[in-house]
Computed example of a mutant assay.
Amino acid sequence: MQSITPAQLSQWLEQVRQERPDGPLPLVLDVREPWELQTASVRPDGFELLHIPMRTIPARLAELDPQRPVACLCHHGMRSAQVVHFLNNQGFESVVNIHGGIDRWSQELDPAVPVY
């Protein structure tokens, strides 16, 4: 499984743009629970943001494009790692885990994002 840190996200986004210049924006898939989203969230910048709680991913799989690059995000990176593994097993081609999750995002990219 490929992992990136929040600080490496912009590099990953640039790599995706170079590999797929005519493709859709990469997707950051936030797999946290709704209450977590209300506590802390990220602002899309160069990517589309979609929230699907981890427990609902199998039922909502049709909402995701297996050809689209996806970076999975959770609180610390454990749930998102499980989702990456699941999506890889479902045939998704380009999926990465954002290691450290939104907690590390607050430290590396945006201190305005609350830590919880």
Rank of each mutant, 00 (worst) to 15 (best):
W12I: 00
G100E: 05
M1E: 10
V95K: 08
R79Y: 08
L29R: 01
V28C: 00
F47S: 09
E14A: 14
R43S: 15
Q11S: 14
D22Y: 11
P34H: 00
R20L: 12
L61Y: 03
R43T: 15
I102Q: 07
E93G: 14
C74K: 02
R32H: 03
L73A: 06
F92Q: 04
L9M: 02
L29K: 02
V96N: 02
R32S: 02
V28G: 00
L49F: 03
Q2D: 15
L50S: 01
L9P: 01
G46V: 01
P21N: 03
A62T: 13
V28D: 00
P111R: 10
V83Y: 00
P58N: 07
C74M: 01
C74P: 05
G77H: 07
W12N: 06
H75Y: 13
P26L: 05
V84K: 08
S3W: 08
R55D: 11
H85N: 14
H75G: 12
A40G: 02
P26R: 02
N88F: 12
L109Y: 06
L50N: 06
S41D: 15
F47A: 07
S80K: 08
D103F: 14
T56H: 12
G91Q: 06
Q38W: 03
L73T: 02
V16I: 09
Q67D: 15
L49R: 06
V42K: 05
L27C: 04
P24S: 12
Q67W: 12
T5F: 02
A62P: 09
V84Q: 10
L87M: 02
A7L: 09
R79D: 01
A62G: 11
C74H: 09
L37T: 09
W35M: 13
A81I: 01
V31R: 00
E14I: 06
E108V: 12
D110Y: 01
M78E: 13
E14P: 04
I4W: 05
L37A: 09
V113T: 11
L13E: 03
T39H: 13
C72Y: 00
A112D: 14
R20H: 13
V83M: 06
A62W: 11
R17T: 11
W12S: 11
A7D: 10
R20Y: 12
L64G: 07
H75R: 15
S80F: 04
L61W: 06
R60Q: 09
S3M: 10
T5K: 01
L29M: 00
F86T: 05
L50C: 00
L61V: 03
E33V: 01
L25P: 03
E14L: 11
F86E: 07
D22I: 07
G77M: 05
Q67E: 15
S3C: 10
R43M: 14
L29A: 05
D110W: 02
R60G: 06
W12F: 12
S41A: 15
M78C: 10
S41L: 13
G23P: 00
I52N: 05
N97F: 04
S10W: 09
Q2S: 14
R32Y: 02
L37F: 10
R55L: 11
E48T: 11
A59E: 13
A71M: 10
P69A: 05
Q8D: 05
L29D: 06
T56D: 14
I57D: 04
I57V: 03
Q2E: 15
V84R: 09
P53L: 04
V113F: 04
